[in-house]
Amino acid sequence: EFTQKQQDLLRHILDAFSKYRIPQEVTRKLLQQRSSAEENFLLLTETATSHVQVLVEFTKKLPGFQMLDHEDQIALLKGSAVEAMFLRSAQMFSRRIPCQQSELLEDRIRHSGIAEEYIIPMFNFYRSIGELKMTQEEYSLLTAITILSPDRSFVKNREAIDRLQEPLLEILQKYCKLNHPDDPQHFARLLGRLTELRTFNHHHSNMLMSWRIN
């Protein structure tokens, strides 16, 4: 069972995660039809920028984060922004009923000058996330765990970050046992997705370079 402390922490993170949303004026543009490659590129850039802002708001609510060394806070956010963005879009793309928004977003991504070699791993990842049928608790915990990774570059006090991440891993592990008694590997599978997520840092920087060249 969860301890009281674990229940409170999970509820707190779930509450913060429910507010982790891109403002409507940005998403509304995603639904507009006009979409040349340039417009798609600008729209994706604006969406990514807006995502970083809401990611910081979510992260500020992670217990203990604001007590960390200020430069370590920046190192964690810089190190996880791309991964959190792809995990967040995977959540949207893996909804059982593809909504108008995800269809339009997929169309924009496929027609924005991004090279095919980066689109394939992206949608493979979205599919592998979708297969896990993750709940809001799993997405919120996995996002927090991704952000609070002690091994990001330029981090000075790794132990302090590990002390914040460890309780979240324990809650996620317990949550998986409670909710997936039939699938003892579920927790390991979730962590496996984090490894796959790390490859997007490399893809993303190449993608930006290819965009600049185009």
């Binding site: 604006e46 920028t49 970083v52 910081v56 810089k78 922004a81």
Partner: peptide, 22 residues
């Protein structure tokens, strides 16, 4: 939108200080 040409770190620093324009 000025944020487009601000680097990732600038956006993070600004948001951390809670002064980004919503």
């Amino acid at each position: 939108h000025s944020a487009n040409n601000m680097g990732l770190e600038d956006i993070i620093r600004k948001a951390l200080m809670g002064t980004y324009d919503d």
